[in-house]
Design a protein around this nucleic acid. Sequence first.
DNA 1: TTGTAAGCGTTATCAC
DNA 2: GTGATAACGCTTACAA
Lengths: 352, 352
Amino acid sequence: MPTIRDVARLAGVSPATASLALRARPGVRALTRKLVEDVATELRYVPNLTGRRLARGRADALGVIQGLNMTTLFSDAFYRLVLSGVGEAVHASDYSLVIAPALRPGVGVDHLMRFVGPGTVDGVLIVGVLDPEWVLAILERGLTVVVVDNHLPGTKVPAVVHDYRGGARLVTEHLLALGHRRVGLVGADVAYPFGWETQDGYRDALAARGLDCDPALVRLTAIGVDAAAAATHGLLDLPDPPTAVVTVTDMMAIGALRAVRERGLRVPEDLAVAGMDDVEISAHTDPPLTTLRVPKEEMGRLAAERLMALSRGESPVPRIAELSGTLIVRKSCGAAGSDPAPEGRATSLGYA
Amino acid sequence: MPTIRDVARLAGVSPATASLALRARPGVRALTRKLVEDVATELRYVPNLTGRRLARGRADALGVIQGLNMTTLFSDAFYRLVLSGVGEAVHASDYSLVIAPALRPGVGVDHLMRFVGPGTVDGVLIVGVLDPEWVLAILERGLTVVVVDNHLPGTKVPAVVHDYRGGARLVTEHLLALGHRRVGLVGADVAYPFGWETQDGYRDALAARGLDCDPALVRLTAIGVDAAAAATHGLLDLPDPPTAVVTVTDMMAIGALRAVRERGLRVPEDLAVAGMDDVEISAHTDPPLTTLRVPKEEMGRLAAERLMALSRGESPVPRIAELSGTLIVRKSCGAAGSDPAPEGRATSLGYA
DNA sequence: TTGTAAGCGTTATCAC
DNA sequence: GTGATAACGCTTACAA
């Protein structure tokens, strides 16, 4: 592997000059630059990033740490789109993207530093939910941190979040606007903001119509297809069952669809079902899901941009950026809608 | 940021000893080691990976370069599972995973070296199809390369591939075994191995039964839902249309399903449809797809392992590793089957 | 068992 | 404009 000294020697200049020339920096004669460049291509010289990083004291790279509320970043229907946005932004700025292993029992924060420690990356993005102590442990290791799709109340950790409260309200209001008066909630029984924000949004919508919240209609369960199916069965077992239900993720909505099907009932005639997230599969269920489109890629993009800014010493404000979703009306609530354009780059960036 | 010299100084030892102690290497007294470790945790010392990489001359990291036959590695239904397997293997070996930006006009191989050049990674995995010249250009830059899901005939580039020929044959045979005699092929009009291998497999199956291959039943199109739908329409327009069709990807099968639906016909009664790949969505179409399960995660895992072995100087044989898929019988061909376990590790988010 | 010293490949500072 | 030279943080002979 030729080094910059090899290039310099063959070009008859010093390494310093060769370095300047190859990076097209001012302060080197055009002729000299040309000479150096020619030698470099001749030698098939590739600058060694590691050397450069050490010398410059920065990596121009970002790390990604996955939260605990997903099995795998790559396979999770929601987060892989966030990751896609991250990749876009990072590469657009000529930063590298480093993926850390998932935290597991046995893989602690210190182990993580062997992959995304200071020096290798200029900061890390925490995607999803991670115990606050762990986040703080990461900060203590000297890394710049931005959290996506979660925030740590009571801390100063910058975050990019989605307005789940407003989103849940929007979805619930849609059902109410369709005339439903008994709307159930299949919520998430989790101890992080997503859990209570979605419940609050649901209650906001009811309250705005002056409706009472019947506790029997609220079921908190694990986030998953099976648990949501069970919860839906529970709702339909009620003496006075709901005519519509909001599930806080689309995968849970798929569970609800299954429960209805298992009873020989139909969606939306017997039960209207609305989800949240708008993942790939949501347009292909039977019937296609009415849901809230969470701007997943945009969240990833924004978070990456903020992290890069932070690593350059800038301080983006506000500390917490909140994006809002949009209602996607398909067929699972009865108000038929044509399928909208798939989620893509051009999304309105509604700060709340 | 404390360095190893800080740790050494405070522990009253030399950097060399501190280095040995912190890496739990032999040749240092237990007491000394304990002392060094204590100082390190006290100082919150995190070893700087960049320094280590430079000193050791290896990165313990792998890069991933995405091929041209996908939009995004993270969002592609097929390749994200390959990537998932890669991540698993890489992290299991304590290697880092670096994602390179997609090659585009303007992002050439040299630009790529700013992300996954020698020094930063010990080798790169090329996922999917890339022009042979580009692969060679990467090799010329001194990187170790393994290609996944494609191979470069006539070169010595190691690869992990899937037996698409055998797979297409398996799927076609399934249709023939069900009694179909006019089986169409919606193949891929592409100039890389996948294209012709799938065609060969289809013909193999027919030949094994002593059937002629009616050229009118073979349609080569772009890989995509719409093109496949159009091709299927073409087949159904024939005076003597097929009673079954094989599409070489599941996304194309979805196009075929749509075409049948658009004509007011039914699957499988009027046309049996079989796909290949078995992506996430394939179990959720209406009807669920009978398809070939390509071991995507396994391919990624194996490729990563081979690349790591290669980077350590070992030479895995054979140069090309070929994996085979398995037939997944669902309902789109009429031979009802219960849905098999999903690919990969059990996930609580498992689809219904 | 421990310390010294020489690199690894690059960039940045400063003379010239 | 260009060239020495000194870092950057770590590992590893080799010497003690």
